[in-house]
Write a protein that binds this DNA or RNA. Sequence first.
DNA 1: TTGAAAGCGCTAACAG
DNA 2: CTGTTAGCGCTTTCAA
Lengths: 335, 335
Amino acid sequence: MKSRMNITEIAKQAGVSIATVSRVLNNPSLVKESTRQRVLDVLQSTNFKINAIAKNLRTKKSYSIGLIYTSVLMLFYNMISKGVEDIAIGKSYNVFFCNSGDDPIKESDYLSLLYEKRVDGIIVSPTGNNRELFENIISYGIPVCFIDRIVKGINTDSVVVNNRESSCNAVSYLIEKGYGRIGFISGPKWTWTGIERFKGYLDAHAAHNIEFLEELVRFGDFQYDSGYEGAKELIKEGDIDALYIANEPMAAGALEYLNEKKIRFPEDIGFLMWDNPYWSTLVKPQISVVSQPMYTIGTTASELLFKRITAAEAYMDKEPLKITLNTELVIRGST
Amino acid sequence: MKSRMNITEIAKQAGVSIATVSRVLNNPSLVKESTRQRVLDVLQSTNFKINAIAKNLRTKKSYSIGLIYTSVLMLFYNMISKGVEDIAIGKSYNVFFCNSGDDPIKESDYLSLLYEKRVDGIIVSPTGNNRELFENIISYGIPVCFIDRIVKGINTDSVVVNNRESSCNAVSYLIEKGYGRIGFISGPKWTWTGIERFKGYLDAHAAHNIEFLEELVRFGDFQYDSGYEGAKELIKEGDIDALYIANEPMAAGALEYLNEKKIRFPEDIGFLMWDNPYWSTLVKPQISVVSQPMYTIGTTASELLFKRITAAEAYMDKEPLKITLNTELVIRGST
DNA sequence: TTGAAAGCGCTAACAG
DNA sequence: CTGTTAGCGCTTTCAA
């Protein structure tokens, strides 16, 4: 087993001091051409790779960021993480990916771990808990950027979409298209996203002077099963003209139920869902969706974070940036 | 901005030496109950979190592993990464996720970066290049475990599925079901997985004494577009009784083409694909698949890696473990 | 243009 | 049971 090179060894072989090796690595222009070349040669021939751990300890930067999100099994978060990573790797940063599964305890564990690893910044789709921990982290000067959701009372950068307005638009479209009773499988009330989309549903009804009926709403947990159950209950309970669903996994669950019962859209029922997974164009007819700019959410959050990380102090104290991106209502065959 | 605690500060506040603080953190039983309690109190009240960077420098372990895979946008890799992470986090390890996009250059960049970050091990779905770099890394004692694919000539742990046999089984099933001309959208020839599944296709034909016809095969690149194009060409070129497709994205592309042309299965054509994305049960009829134990691939690889990482030297020198898992042929309505 | 030396925060002998 | 001290591999003054 070969042992790894370090700059002391390089210095020895090149006949210079470790300071000179370090300069060649970080500030080549400070070193005389001939010396530099000599060091470079040794660096090359020994296949030297810097020990980032030691460097990080000394410079107090880790060149890593953390990304905490709900689930690696949702296209929504996958696209976001791709965006985050593409920006990060462009700056030679690595990304620690963490699946919280929306569990506050796991979130807290990950936050602690990332803190210990001294990541230079954290992008997180927060569960809504752990407020104190977030405040703590931010107070130590570690930039935090929220994505998809925000935590009330925590003032930091965020990148979200206009959930309420988008939801209102989507439901308004259904109403204007002539759908009467619009069943809604909502996200949970304890999530910001869930609430906002629900408010949008109410807004659309109010704007069209349609009475809101509680019986038309089921609050799921954004997971597959609750979509299946929601569809089952809503359809059993009474006539539903359209089904409007707040995210991808619940929509998949609902679809499964419709398939089982051989309920067809748009003939029997309209079907409109949030997120734009690529299976939404694979089924027949293709499904109308509220499409979020997922990749852009990721790149935007990442760029925001790096602005803070590399900021001149001037920027550090700037007010948090709250960015709201727009969604797109994509009408296809299901409505 | 608060400044972060370190053990020197803790020691001062607790009136002990830093060594004692370190013991409380790592070997509490070595410290007298009353002293320990005093230190613990300070630890608690100051919200101390260890500086992992410093610890890692000293102990020469990073408590991080790297995972390099093709694409965050394929369920296959997502499930694997979930498995990897679940095991890792159970050992308080973090995972650096890296999307190589199957680009050897990105793979090489990531490998270097992970090496610099001193990860304790690497799980990778290799592009097939960078052999020298892999050898180098392994020679420094960093455990490497291949998943999904292997690199010829590199002798290290691996977790793959029985591609050839599975492919043969799948095609045999189609043949025995009565499908005559079986169009195959294969993976690329330069990937191990691609080749193996292609060999399986040949095996099945040979076993049934059916002549292999080159015109029935298209070599894609495992991406969506090549699935679409492959389907288009195969179907244009002549009668195809069934379409057999080597992975998920290509199958999605092919399906898109069938939808466009209103070609139905199983009436017009049989449809059988690798991977078991959940959209395969969302379309009607549901699609028959070769299902891989994705999550298990991830957990198995992770466990293998940790065995090496935490190994007594006795284990370190053990021959690499080559694990081959079985797939499952799931028959649904499309064939 | 270069080298000597201090020190980042921690662990692990070693001594007491 | 506890403290002193060396040192992990690097960067960064400071002095030459």
